[in-house]
Design a protein around this nucleic acid. Structure first.
Lengths: 106, 106
DNA sequence: TTAATTGTTCGATTTTGATCGAACTTATTC
DNA sequence: GAATAAGTTCGATCAAAATCGAACAATTAA
């Protein structure tokens, strides 16, 4: 029983610059976002990233990205597909994603 | 005796995006940078900021800003005058300082 | 209906970062 | 030369963030 998890996402206006900086300060999250930027039309499951981290930690990073307005997530069967909120995030913080795109992959 | 402190500053090419994000994630440092952006031709001593923090903590924040390439510091008598490395930082991370300028002061 | 898959949540640990007071250094001022 | 002023450095403390393993829930596959 119980309902399927609902993924909340913040209003972009409520995301502070400090929060945006904070979430992009972590190299793992930066790598996730960079990968997503490289395949704009792809929805990513958590396990599609080559991160040497436990499931729990990866889940935690995705939550941080969601809370900062960077990604949105939907349930698909037993997977959770995430994608960038590219346009809204770009509108809120113009040019920020470009910096990620241009930064040489770690 | 001993020599007067030399303030080192990194080559801007060596500053990673992750480091830049990290240093701008802190609200106090963000406030410092915002204030500096508002008075581009002013050199700031540490005590010119209305921060409710101890000298030690403020000194630590300035060091973080220096290490991330955001500011440069020179000794003037018994004061240390800091100013933004605006052009070089802007060249390394185009648009990033604009985000700070446009973010409503906390 | 039992496995396996995919992720979340919990509790604990470890690491990192922010913060402070006190002692110190250097330079100025008295 | 003593007192003051501006920062730095040190050591300690406290809070936040990253990390993991284990238990759990939901879904699909066997």
């Amino acid at each position: 029983m119980g309902t399927t998890k609902k993924y909340q996402q913040p209003n972009m206006a409520d995301v502070t610059l400090s929060t945006a900086m904070q979430v992009l300060a972590d190299p793992c999250r930066l790598a996730i976002v960079r990968t997503m930027l490289e395949q704009p039309d792809h929805e990513f499951a958590c396990n599609e990233f080559e991160l040497d981290l436990s499931k729990a930690t990866i889940s935690h990073h995705f939550e941080a990205l969601r809370d900062a307005g960077l990604i949105q997530t939907r349930v698909d069967g037993r997977r959770c597909l995430s994608s960038l909120r590219r346009e809204s995030f770009e509108a809120r913080f113009p040019g920020l994603l470009d910096l990620v795109t241009n930064e040489p992959g770690s």
